[in-house]
Design a protein around this nucleic acid. Structure first.
Lengths: 157, 157
DNA sequence: TACTATTATGCAGGCTACCTGCTGAATTGT
DNA sequence: ACAATTCAGCAGGTAGCCTGCATAATAGTA
């Protein structure tokens, strides 16, 4: 119907976004099927930056490259659904540590397994299409970009 | 600050999204600097699917994989800012054709040039990092995925 | 003991980019 | 001529971000 020959004439941006969206969509589906139907794509912004012992909100926000306010909302969401808690930080009474609950750890276990399966399938697709190590290609390109283009981004250091 | 070694340990999804977001951000910046400060990322959802002679809303929506209502909003936005118009479709009085105005064509000219420059730089990064033809790798992987995973998506057969 | 600057968090409100549900007009097929 | 379909648009809602402002704890200085 779309009359376009395929993905050949799409922009590079679209070609990058499309696999990402499909992977996220499938992960959410699989995690829901495994007993966690209330998990949303944005939850990964928290989960993938959490340290085992707990992490401060501002640190989570910095890692995810977002404001602490937005990260606070995401954490509150996970908290309401029983996947995370905020405990006082013994090192600094201003701060709190965001930690997984037992239910949150169960979720992480399932999510990491499903993600590995999905990533594995796509990595094979990429390899078959000429990119033998897509992860290295993407990570390498990002590093080259940061060196050649000190541009934009966080003015944190 | 983020204490992570780099992009090595990020998920494949993040590695795909990060270059895409940077490319989009830079394109919007460059287009703004070239005299079009009111262009937003979502405008590309319309522009990249417009045929030279004009295109129907439902066709635009199908190509962009969104609802016609949402596409209608995007087109209205471009219309208000003077980049597009809706003219009656001579073939079908129910329909209208979305077309670029002269200002819209100026925008497209600039945007395509800037996009080519940005994509070129990234394609070089990817090649240097081991993916000699990233576009082919991404397009090929998407095709393989569609064959192996008839899954989800449009029921348009 | 203040006093100041900094850091950590949270609340209020706003914006973009999508969505579903519904209505109405024009077209097509019988 | 009439039902089913297609095209477009309006109303209202949601997710995921944002900025601005307020509050509490800490660290440094005097």
């Amino acid at each position: 119907m779309t009359d376009r020959a395929g993905w050949q004439n799409a922009t590079l941006v679209t070609l990058l976004l499309e696999p990402a969206h499909r992977m996220v969509g499938e992960l959410v589906e699989r995690v829901a099927a495994a007993g966690f139907p209330d998990i949303r794509p944005s939850d990964s912004r928290v989960l993938e930056n959490l340290d085992p012992g707990g992490t401060r909100l501002t640190e989570l926000a910095a890692r995810a490259q977002m404001t602490h306010q937005s990260m606070g909302e995401l954490v509150s969401g996970l908290e309401e659904r029983g996947y995370a808690t905020r405990i006082p930080d013994p090192q600094d009474r201003r701060a709190r540590l965001v930690r997984l609950t037992p239910q949150g750890r169960d979720l992480m276990h399932v999510a990491l397994e499903e993600l590995a399966a999905i990533e594995g399938r796509w990595l094979a697709h990429f390899a078959a299409a000429g990119a033998s190590d897509m992860r290295a290609a993407l990570a390498g390109a990002l590093e080259r970009e940061q060196q050649s283009h000190p541009a934009a981004e966080a003015a944190d250091d």
